[in-house]
Write a protein that binds this DNA or RNA. Structure first.
Lengths: 270, 270
DNA sequence: TTGCTCCTCACGTCACGTGAGGTGGC
DNA sequence: TTGCTCCTCACGTCACGTGAGGTGGC
């Protein structure tokens, strides 16, 4: 009969761990003194403790281990548990590797600039949404506010006639590359609540979900180039590439206004 | 002024997250209605929320992010935080990769045997300990119990004369490879509480800490070969190799008794 | 008698998620 | 009026660690 301190020592676990395992009914001392409450373990129990530790090393939860020890798990179920754990571990390794790339990119940036960065790039998932869209070509960059503005007005008027409701801020999807400033190909888009008939100028469809890298841009319409540059730099440093048309979400009534815009670049791993 | 639900939606966080950030003083709504308690946010705050999310993507804790936003972190300190996080991530990737190997080894074993394994191998760290040791060569395998037994008796007698105390179970360290059964080279060892003078037969020194793979063996002295085989198989499957003399810890008075033994193979990554 | 080991609560961890039960706004 | 959104507690998560305050054993 071994006292808890010694048994914990040879089993290389803490006394508190043994207390806890008893609390949750996973592993009980062979005997408990009814007067002092002292717990006593036998050497035979060392093998069982070792078993628990070995299963914990596989990443199983204490609850799963309890079921295993109670014998109500078939080999097929154990295989299922391990397959699940395998998938989790693979995902975690991938996630942590990506996070490591982000951290290292930021460290490199700190070395170069030695200051806090101006833009904060965050990875997000945008949800799918039903939209009404008007696609236009804009010959010169300085015409963007006017042309986009009238495209939004046109959709807006159509939605009012149809009695549709807006369910979020308007946005633009740029089909030209971010470096191009002539004949830009862009969709003016409103998210809507239900399907509508299309016209030859206004299309209605579901924008799919996308992984995006996003920055929030404050200030004048003409200064998006800085946000674009920050995003492209971040993507290069973190091993992502642009994966389709990028979005600008205008958190206000009209893109010509001077306010808050979120720039979202869809990304895929290179 | 945006209500919490809409602000959470465009920021792609949950309402509960915004509640929580307010609770811990990280991120407060621009305004709170004193009668209804309704929280109101401005579009400007979207940039700040994005900043928090970007920093969270680097793996910083919310407390660290709070310090960063409050501006009482220098670039050097930020670099320190990121270096720390980098080290943590590298360790986690290594740990998870090793765990993945264990899980996959177990899955493979399940495919072959389709049953619960007889031995449970656990990775542990053994602490350094001060020991008294008597090293002997044993010509034939069947002499092991007798020769080891008298070696233990000899140390025991010496320790009694010196008035030293035992501080754990006795053990043997096998310097011969586990497959060798002739002229085995082995140390009989007692852990002791304080340094003693050495003799030409009994050495006193500190056994260093080691990473070991361990199984608990129950039953007769002659059946250790099974434990050894299980350990060697596990090590091969998980990418470890034997790294020095292996230990048998006898959780009883004499190794000749029939009881519980822990076999510990020191390991290193291949 | 003095340490040492052991005991039982109770609370903390990290970043929220999940209800319960109730009120405000259109 | 009916839903919908919002509010404030309170508790749960996972596997223990960290005291506080007290008792048993040699």
């Amino acid at each position: 009969m071994l006292k808890i301190g010694y048994f914990a020592w040879i089993g290389r676990v803490s006394v508190k761990t043994l207390h806890y395992y008893e609390d949750i009914g996973l592993f009980r001392p062979a005997q408990v003194d009814p007067f002092t409450g002292y717990r006593y373990y036998t050497l035979d129990q060392l093998a069982e403790l070792n078993r628990i530790i070995a299963l914990k090393d596989l990443g199983l939860s204490l609850e799963q281990i309890g079921q295993l020890l109670a014998g109500d798990v078939s080999p097929a179920e154990l295989r299922g548990m391990l397959r699940l754990r395998q998938a989790q571990l693979r995902e975690q390794v991938a996630d942590h590797t990506a996070e490591l790339a982000r951290v290292e990119a930021r460290l490199k940036q700190l070395d170069v600039e030695d200051q806090m960065p101006e833009y904060d790039v965050a990875l997000k998932v945008v949800e799918p949404m039903l939209v009404a869209s008007r696609r236009v070509i804009i010959p010169q960059n300085d015409q963007v506010p006017a042309v986009l503005g009238s495209a939004f007005d046109e959709i807006n008027a159509y939605l009012s006639r149809q009695g549709a409701r807006l369910v979020g801020p308007c946005l633009a999807r740029w089909h030209s590359s971010p470096e191009v400033y002539e004949n830009e190909d862009v969709e003016a888009i409103y998210p809507i609540d239900r399907p509508l008939p299309e016209t030859d100028r206004i299309k209605v469809y579901e924008l799919p979900a996308e992984d995006v890298a996003a920055v929030v841009h404050r200030g004048a319409f003409a200064e998006f180039a800085n946000s674009h540059a920050a995003l492209l730099q971040w993507m290069a440093a973190n091993g992502y590439r642009l994966n389709g048309a990028y979005r600008e979400v205008y958190h206000r009534s009209q893109p010509a206004d001077d306010s808050v815009t979120e720039v979202q670049f869809p990304v895929a791993r290179t």
